[in-house]
Nucleic acid binder design. Structure first.
Lengths: 153, 153
DNA sequence: GCATCTTCGCAAGTCGATTGCGCCACCGAG
DNA sequence: CTCGGTGGCGCAATCGACTTGCGAAGATGC
């Protein structure tokens, strides 16, 4: 599916405000409501818009800490990796998990309420996963920017 | 603001589907529509729900690569850091930016279309920022999990 | 046990979403 | 150059959901 300038404008707005009303969205992108809504539906059906979500304030929701954990596995064979992946999928504290090329084997983003909470998570969940050789935790001291918006050019 | 079990249920649902209709949301959490909507409004006013966003499919939107860059600065004084932060805020490719404690000084998530696009970004934008001493790029080979939902217990 | 406060559920009114239809501009063929 | 076809836009009417006010029920504290 080819995106023209109006589609990109729609996507930029929806990435800022996923609950904007169609009439207002139409005004912002320079269209009347019905073709605007039609384009949104097409973008949804094409899967370009994957879903809509509410973004919570982590501090006010009681999970102010977001830690990064770099993971080294004992081996890189499919069995070890698949087992690790399956384990990560079951842990709700793991908000993001990537298998990495390069230095470490995986990168996690873990949401916790404080450092004690993280230590508990590490001891009762992470260390019980087979195949993990080492974990290095990286702590952000300041969140400079956290957009989930893709920069469409 | 104290969250009871119903509030948490509402937040869990809205983190999955930010455009769910109020009547359906009410059914899922076991409430009638009006008190349900009232709670949602309170959660928004309290800032617990920060905003609603559309989540795009990075592949279908033409930005399939999400790279992590660990940054080392030349110094840790406020001036150097503030200048770096200001620069990161202006770069749309930088979806996330954290100032880190520990090994590296900052962590970035950069959205690009391919590796050439990233090289171009690095040479025309990153290297022109004063105060950057070194950058190590970490490439994910597989996205195992990518939830923006906080695990409310 | 009573008063008060909070929160729920119901119902009516209002607003926006949704669909069908006609029109216009662009494009290709003859 | 003209004509037929196609795709997208805008308008209007219907439908559905959101929204607000009010009465009732349950919980809490004195």
């Amino acid at each position: 599916m080819r995106l023209d300038e109006i589609d990109k404008r729609i996507l930029r707005v929806l990435q800022r405000d996923g609950r904007i009303q169609n009439v207002e969205l139409a005004k912002e992108v320079g269209l009347s409501p019905s073709p605007c809504l039609r384009r949104v539906k097409l973008l949804e059906d094409a899967g370009i818009i994957d879903r809509y979500v509410a973004v919570l304030n982590p501090v006010k929701a009681g999970l102010p800490l977001s830690l990064f954990a770099r993971v080294w596995l004992t081996a890189q064979d499919a069995e070890t990796i698949d087992h690790f992946i399956a384990a990560m999928k079951t842990l709700p504290q793991v908000m993001e998990c990537y298998i990495m090329l390069g230095e470490s084997d995986a990168l996690l983003r873990v949401a916790v309420s404080d450092l004690d909470d993280y230590r508990q998570f590490q001891s009762t969940h992470l260390t019980r996963v087979n195949g993990i050789q080492n974990v290095k935790t990286d702590v952000p001291s300041q969140v400079v920017k956290q957009t989930y918006a893709l920069p469409l050019r």
